[in-house]
């Protein structure tokens, strides 16, 4: 019998603590597979955020640091500067990266720090119980926007990729989604590319995963995928927002 798929070496044997139907399992796996495929695990340090993936240090089988809310890019800066011979990634959610940690992500990207950021956007604060996030869609009901997000009162969702793509330094920025098998296959390619650029010390790389939160959206997992395709993808458009390798390699 031939084994065609197995647990990546870069994941520990610990059982995920995510809700049923949550997409964190998929994005964890994609990051770990890229680490395996590029043989980076023994040179890798990761940073976990505050949010649902706060315990990700139990799942990624490499050296890990747990950051204060939003500070993962600052930690990663300190880590990469301390060990420039090693590779670094952060794994962050939307509240972490686009609310409390906006300054840290913008300036780390602007300095062109040599690490990868994996950003999970599910339009809600999951861990604290479904409050409004900086990426919550207009009209979307959450536990702190019970009448729906009023963009006249609290503003529109922030688009991370578009924001960071205005900066000169970032090397590669792409938004992918985890909403169907086809999307996941595309996401896998993007994660691999970011990790490859990371390994080659090309610069700052950023992958956004448009994801779901069935628990706090109050939907069954399959319904959540459909809802996200209909509502999130028109606002958070998939695609490559920056890829300096195209210019460098003249493709």
């Amino acid at each position: 019998m031939e084994i065609i798929a197995t647990r990546p070496k870069s994941l520990t044997k610990a059982q995920f603590t995510y809700c049923p139907g949550c997409t964190h399992g998929i994005s964890h796996r994609l990051v770990a597979e890229a680490m395996d495929e590029l043989d980076m695990r023994n040179k890798m340090m990761g940073v976990c955020p505050v949010g649902c993936s706060v315990l990700a240090y139990n799942f990624f089988d490499c050296d890990m640091a747990e950051a204060a809310h939003g500070r993962a890019p600052a930690l990663a800066t300190g880590m990469k500067r301390a060990r420039p011979d090693m590779h670094v990634f952060t794994y962050q959610g939307d509240g972490d990266l686009l609310a409390i940690g906006t300054a840290e992500i913008v300036h780390a990207a602007n300095r062109g720090e040599h690490f990868s950021v994996f950003f999970v956007n599910n339009a809600i604060y999951g861990m604290t119980g479904g409050q409004m996030a900086p990426t919550t869609l207009p009209g979307m009901k959450t536990s702190t926007s019970p009448y729906g997000r009023d963009e006249q009162d609290i503003g529109y969702p922030i688009r991370a990729c578009e924001l960071l793509a205005t900066l000169e330094a970032p090397y590669y920025i792409e938004r992918v989604s985890l909403l169907s098998p086809q999307h996941v296959l595309k996401a896998k390619k993007a994660v691999y590319k970011a990790m490859k650029f990371n390994k080659e010390e090309r610069g700052f790389t950023f992958i956004e995963f448009v994801s779901t939160c069935p628990t706090n959206w109050g939907m069954e997992p399959m319904k959540a995928f459909e809802w996200a395709k209909e509502n999130m993808l028109p606002f958070f458009k998939l695609g490559v927002f920056k890829d300096k390798s195209v210019e460098e390699e003249g493709k």
Binding site: A67, A74, L75, A76, G78, E104
Partner: peptide, 25 residues
């Protein structure tokens, strides 16, 4: 390594990251 950080919050968290790598920071 010298980095002028975006804030004192970022600076102390860079210290946390570098110290976590066992370096004098």
């Amino acid at each position: 390594t010298f980095v002028q950080s975006e804030s004192e919050i970022a600076a102390i968290n860079m210290v946390y990251g570098a110290s976590g790598c066992g370096k004098r920071v």
